[in-house]
Design a protein around this nucleic acid. Structure first.
Lengths: 149, 149
DNA sequence: ATATAATAGTACTAACTAGTAATAATGTCA
DNA sequence: TGACATTATTACTAGTTAGTACTATTATAT
C-alpha cells in the first residue's frame, strides 16, 4: 500500500514488515479457506478438528489455548462441528465444569482423507516462493516475534 | 503445537513455519484489536479508514483490492463506518455503478489522534523481538512469499 | 471440624460484526 | 440490441466478544 506520509525511518520499515506479514497470511489463508470450503469446512473448524485429530481428547479450555482463541468462540465452532457429526463431547467426571471433546470416527476419516493434501497444498505455496533455508530463517524470526508478545 | 505425526521432513519444516506465521500475526492482531476496541474501532474498520486517510477518495472496488477483501465485505464494514460518521459516500457521476468513499473531518480527526500511537505500539512489538536488520530480512522473505501467491 | 464467604476457573448465551455466494444494476462492445 | 463484463448490494452463514452463570477451591470464622 502506497503511503502518502512517513512516520519515521525505522517506523516505516516496521510498518512495511507488518503489512507484508498481514498480506502474505491473508493470501495463503484465502486459498486454504477456498480449498476447505469445497470440503465443507471452515478454517476455525479445521483448526479444532486438527487439534483433536493429532492430540486426542481435549477440553474447551485446552483448545482455546492451542488455537489462541476465546472460550465463547470455541463453544460456537464446536457446536457447528458437533452438528456435522465430526466431533463429540463428554462431560468430565472429575470436574463438572469441564467438557471433554473428542473427534468421531467420521471426523477422523475426514481428516485422514484431506490432511495429507492440505499439507501438500501448503508446502507448494511456500516452496513456490522460498527455498528450505529461507523457510527456516523465516520460521526462526517469526518464532522470536511470536514469543516476544 | 506438538504434533504426534510427521508428514515428511521438509513438510514438517513448512508446517512449523506456517504455524509461526499464523501465531505471530494472531498475537499481534489481538493486541491491536484490544487497543482499537478501546477507541471504538474494529481492525477491518481501521483498515478502511486508514486507506481513505492516507490515499484520499477511493471506490469500494479499490478498497477491496487494497485490503485483499471482497466487495460484499467492504459494503458491510463501510455501512458501520458511515453510521459512526467517520466516512461518507458519494455516487460517481461518470459511472453510476461506482460509489466513491471519503473520510469525514471527524474520521480524519480520529486518525490524526490515534495513528501515531498505533504506529508506536506496532513498532514496540517488533522491536521487542527483532533488531532492524532482522525486521528487514523478515520483510523481504514475507514479500517473496506474498508475491508468489 | 464445619459452615460460609470470597475468589478463581470453565464454558455458555446473546448481540454484533464480518465473510461469502448469489443477485441486481449499470456499462461496454460486437 | 443482445451478450458479456464490471461494480456493488442483499441475504445467509459463521465467527467473535463481552457479559453471565455455574462449579470448584481456598480462606476465614465459629
Amino acid at each position: 500500500m502506497k503511503r502518502a506520509k512517513s512516520y519515521g525511518r525505522h517506523e516505516d520499515i516496521v510498518l512495511r514488515a507488518h503489512i507484508e506479514l498481514s498480506r502474505s497470511l491473508t493470501k495463503i489463508r484465502s486459498k486454504e479457506t477456498a480449498w476447505l470450503g469445497d470440503r465443507d469446512l471452515t478454517l476455525p473448524q479445521f483448526g479444532i478438528l486438527e487439534s483433536l485429530y493429532h492430540l486426542g481428547k481435549l477440553s474447551v479450555g485446552q483448545i482455546t489455548k492451542l488455537t489462541l482463541s476465546t472460550p465463547g468462540n470455541i463453544t460456537v465452532v464446536v457446536k457447528n462441528l458437533e452438528s456435522k457429526g465430526l466431533i463429540k463431547s463428554i462431560p468430565s467426571d472429575e470436574d463438572r465444569r469441564i467438557k471433554i471433546l473428542e473427534i468421531t470416527e467420521e471426523g477422523s476419516d475426514t481428516m485422514k482423507s484431506i490432511f495429507h493434501e492440505h499439507v501438500a497444498n501448503l508446502t507448494g505455496m511456500y516452496d513456490a516462493a522460498l527455498n528450505e533455508e529461507e523457510i527456516q530463517i523465516l520460521s526462526r524470526l517469526l518464532r522470536k516475534l511470536e514469543k516476544a508478545q
